[in-house]
Structure formats: C-alpha cells, structure tokens
Design a protein around this nucleic acid. Structure first.
Lengths: 117, 117
DNA sequence: CCAATCGTCAACCATCCGGTTGAATATGCT
DNA sequence: AGCATATTCAACCGGATGGTTGACGATTGG
C-alpha cells in the first residue's frame, strides 16, 4: 500500500495526455486488437507500446485479455464517463457532436496515417 | 519556435491530470481570483501555485489579467470544449448530468476543504 | 521616501515519463 | 524437440514535472 490511491481522474487524464495513447484508443474504437497489431502503425518499439497499453489499462481505459499467446486489448469507454462528467461542469457544451468528433479524428491521426482508414 | 506545436489536447489533458490544478479550476468556477487568493487554501508555496497557473494558462484553461499589482485569474471554459468533444466520441454518455457533477465536486474537494462550500 | 504586498524568476532537487536495447518468458507450429 | 512468434521485464537514458527556497522587480499605502 505504498501508493496512497491517487484520484482516478489523475490517471485517466494523464493517460489521455499522450498523443500515442489517444491514437491507440481511437484504433481500439474500431475493433479489439492484439498488442503487436496496435504497435504496427507506430515508429516506436513494441516495448514502448506495451508500456502505453499498461498505462491505459491502469487508468481503466482498456482491458487486456490473454488468449493463447496473444493479448487482446479492448476499449472500456465507461472509464471516460467520470472524466467527461467532470468536464461538463465547466460551461455546458453541445451534448454530443459526432460530426466534430469525426473532424477531430482526422486531425488527431493526421493525413500521414493511411493504415487506419 | 523550438517547440513543434504540440497537439492542444496534449496540454489540456496534461493540465487536467493534476489534482491541484483541477481544484484551482473548480475554485475559479465560482469567481475570478487573485493569485495569492488562489494559493491560500493549498499547503504549498506561492511560487508553486504560480507555476500551476502558468500551466493552466498555457493550456488556455484560464486567462490572467494584471490589474494594478494583483493578477486576476479567469476561467476559460471554452478550452475544454475540444477535449470534451474528443471524449464524447467514446461511447455516447448521458448528455449533461449535473447531479453527477455535484457528487464529483464533493469527492474532488474532499470533506477537509471547507473554505469552498 | 520607505516599507509592505504581489507575483515571478532562477537555481536546485527528487521523481516521473517516454523512449531505447537486450534478455527472459510464454505459447504455438511443424 | 526445436524454432519462431508474442509480450513483458530490467536496466538505462535524457528530459519534463512538481516542489522548495531566496532574491528580485512592480505596485501600493502611510
């Protein structure tokens, strides 16, 4: 119990602060993926991606299930709910604007990332 | 221009990842405040709070206007919109649940923080 | 003018973070 | 058995982060 139980919002927001991790979440939005497949589009070692996935899992944003020798990563959108609720308190935004979200996917992934069409 | 323009979401989420900074935002939700007054409830030096405010300002979450010798801090809720929109893409949440937000304010501030009732 | 107040700056420190590499540990295939 | 694949572990590195303290420039008030 060396860790004094940090606020869940700490870990969730910290996890979301990294562009690589946000990109991973976006990928998992489409489908569950194995670690190696998650790593494939990135110019980064597999171990680095493995760490990123650990951070996401720690924050509860994904779950990982090992089936055979491959570990499957699954998005857990509920973990975002607390953070979303917290943010909604600051100035009532448009409830759900999925068009804007689509646009954000574009800018997040960038035009140089064609393997995720 | 040594900084290669990081994604705004990076800085916003990173700013939100710190509990002190979230508490500051919550305080500013009630009213604009001077730096010293912001610092008052925290068991931390003024310089530390000054840095936190700089991070929040960098992320666009607050603006600071120096009037006389006191610098006023003002919440800028619009900066949260992009982040909010991004998050809404992951599993459509309840549009706006302010009851849940109230409950979160409780747990965020804790019962030991009476100066903000 | 002088002193107190407001806030930042600069240096320093410990720790965390994001990345690397190389070895180690499964598991699956033939 | 033996080799390839999938993933993590461990050690390491440079740079960012969160905090401290002390000095400093502005501004205000007596």
């Amino acid at each position: 119990m060396t860790a004094p139980a940090p606020d869940p919002l700490d870990t969730v927001f910290a996890a979301l602060a990294d562009p690589t991790r946000r990109a991973i979440l976006t990928m998992l939005l489409e489908d569950d993926m194995a670690v190696t497949d998650v790593a494939h589009p990135f110019a980064m070692s597999l171990a680095a991606i493995s760490k990123h996935l650990a951070v996401l899992a720690e924050a509860g944003l994904i779950t990982q299930e090992k089936r055979g020798r491959v570990k499957w990563c699954k998005l857990e959108p509920d973990a975002l709910r607390a953070a979303s609720v917290w943010m909604q308190g600051f100035g009532q935004f448009d409830p759900v604007d999925l068009d804007a979200f689509e646009r954000f996917l574009e800018t997040e992934l960038g035009p140089d990332q064609d393997s995720l069409s």
